[in-house]
Amino acid sequence: MAKPNLLRLQDHDQITKELSFNIYDICYAVSEDQRRRYIEYIDEQYDADRLTRILSDVAEIIGANILNIARQDYDPQGASVALLMSERMLGRSSTATHVDKSHITVHTYPETHPHTGLASFRADIDVATCGVISPLKALNYLIERFESDIVVCDYRVRGFTRDIKGRKHFLDHRINSIQEFLSRSIRQKYECFDVNVYQENLFHTKMHIKNFQLDDYLFEAKADDLSFKERERIKALLSHEIQELFQGRNIA
């Protein structure tokens, strides 16, 4: 007997929910050697093996079974991982539903500026699910795991499902903003801005770090070893870089 608060469907839930990130981490490496070592450090910290562990955790958080994993490290830098998933069915020893409709992917892009000493690490992440599992459950975990300075996040609901009366449903849960699913600690840490298109079931949130300590952004250096003038110059560079990446355009 169906629970009274659940919508009875003609078949399984065929709505696709996709959560997409551009996540940026910013750093300052003064010399060419330091910038090279920064890229090496990022490639070691976020190689295909570690990315696989992170995405496997995501699958566990949202309640999905992993069907297949493809991963690759690249030369000179970067890595990619893709997980094919299925919905976990309670009370069964195995699953065979949504075999080719749910996935998680991540691609990394370490990068350095040739002159200023600025360096950045970008990760593009997509979590797409069908059925009752929701990618929004992994939202906070992914933001915290990549220690992000900037997060550009999209949540899109596609397709429809049909109830037993034949009526189409284009959204299977309530949502007004991605921010509703952020933890309190993340909301306190970031400035968040929404650009939502409700009639298209498209939700867009941009976030940037509110405050930063210079030591957290210096690679192989300490702020106390720099002059006041040099510290202020680097802070201005970092702030400008964060604003450009956040706004997605060059700022004079």
Rank of each mutant, 00 (worst) to 15 (best):
M1K: 06
M1A: 12
M1S: 10
A2H: 08
P4W: 01
L6G: 09
R8G: 09
Q10C: 06
Q10A: 14
T16N: 11
E18P: 05
S20A: 12
D25C: 01
I26P: 03
I26G: 04
Y28M: 07
A29S: 13
V30H: 12
S31L: 01
Q34M: 11
Q34V: 06
R35V: 02
R36M: 00
R37Y: 04
R37W: 03
Y38F: 12
Y41G: 05
I42D: 07
E44K: 02
D47A: 07
D49V: 03
T52P: 05
R53M: 05
R53K: 10
L55R: 07
L55V: 02
D57K: 00
A59N: 02
I62Y: 02
N65V: 00
N65I: 08
L67Y: 00
A70W: 01
P76C: 01
A79M: 05
A79T: 00
V81W: 03
L83C: 10
L84E: 03
E87D: 09
R88K: 10
S93C: 06
S94K: 15
T97C: 02
T97Y: 00
V99M: 04
V99L: 11
D100Y: 01
K101L: 06
H103K: 11
V106G: 00
Y109T: 05
E111W: 12
G117R: 03
L118D: 06
D124T: 09
V132A: 14
L139C: 12
L142N: 09
E144A: 14
E144I: 04
E144F: 03
D149Q: 08
I150P: 15
V151C: 15
V151Y: 12
V152N: 15
C153P: 13
D154L: 10
R158H: 13
F160M: 10
F160H: 13
T161N: 13
K165Q: 14
G166M: 11
K168N: 15
H169V: 13
F170W: 15
L171S: 15
L171Q: 15
S177T: 13
S177Q: 01
S177N: 08
Q179P: 02
F181K: 15
F181E: 15
S183Q: 11
S185T: 12
I186E: 08
E191C: 04
C192E: 05
N196G: 05
N196M: 04
V197I: 12
Y198R: 13
Q199F: 14
N201Q: 14
N201L: 10
N201K: 13
F203P: 10
F203D: 13
T205Y: 09
F212I: 03
D216K: 01
D216V: 02
L218H: 02
F219W: 07
E220Y: 01
L226F: 01
S227C: 07
S227P: 08
F228M: 07
F228L: 11
R231D: 06
E232Q: 13
R233E: 09
I234D: 02
A236M: 05
A236K: 01
L237S: 08
E241M: 06
E241Y: 06
Q243R: 11
E244G: 00
Q247L: 14
Q247G: 09
Q247T: 03
Q247F: 09
Q247A: 04
N250I: 15
I251L: 11
